[in-house]
Computed example of a mutant assay.
Amino acid sequence: MPGNDPDVLAAELFKTFARFEYALKAAEFHKGEGAAEANWRRFAESVAASFEVPASEEFAQAIAYMLANPPKKQIVEGGVLGWNASAPQTDLQSDRVLIYVRRVRNNLFHGGKFNGRWFEPQRSAVLLQHSLTILNACLAASPAVSEAYHNEP
């Protein structure tokens, strides 16, 4: 696992997330015909048990942190950028946590957490580390996705 440098962690998350999303689609966790979109909900359902009884203390801590300190969603309100702590509308813990992982990625990719400098660099590093832990634990919990992730396309 990379250290706690947000720049290094962000690069690792982008790389891991992109390959992970490819692997979801390659392992048939997609939304069907048309645009190739990963079906994160169906994947969350398939790995739900691993979130209820995490295989490692690191994974358990990552889940607990994400649920207790979820990443916020960037919004525009009254013409001003801000943050909203809106909870995802889902009844499944694995789905909620994976939505939070995607929110971390989206905040990075769309410029919510970095604009020439890191906003809240310590918190960002923790969210990035936990997101990587969660994605890696999901690979371990899903042989089909792991095989697609580790094989060349």
Rank of each mutant, 00 (worst) to 15 (best):
E12K: 09
K113T: 13
A36Q: 09
N115A: 12
F14A: 03
A35T: 10
A38I: 01
N4V: 07
K72P: 08
H150S: 10
P71E: 12
G111S: 11
P6V: 10
N151E: 15
R105A: 11
L81R: 13
I75H: 09
A85W: 05
K72D: 12
S131P: 02
Q122Y: 08
I134V: 15
F20A: 01
P2R: 09
F17Y: 14
A36T: 13
K25W: 00
P2G: 02
F59A: 14
A60F: 01
V97N: 00
L24P: 02
F17K: 04
S142K: 01
A60H: 08
A137V: 07
Q74P: 13
Q74L: 09
M66C: 06
F43A: 01
P121W: 05
L127Q: 13
Q61G: 10
P70H: 10
P88M: 00
V126S: 03
L127M: 11
K73V: 14
Q89V: 10
A55T: 04
I134W: 03
F109G: 09
R42G: 03
P153G: 11
Q61L: 12
Q93M: 10
D7T: 13
Y65A: 05
L139F: 09
I134H: 04
V76K: 09
T16I: 03
L13S: 03
E57Q: 14
G116R: 12
S146G: 13
Y100R: 02
A125G: 14
G112E: 13
S94Q: 07
S56V: 13
D5M: 04
S46P: 07
P143N: 07
I75V: 15
P121Q: 04
Q61C: 06
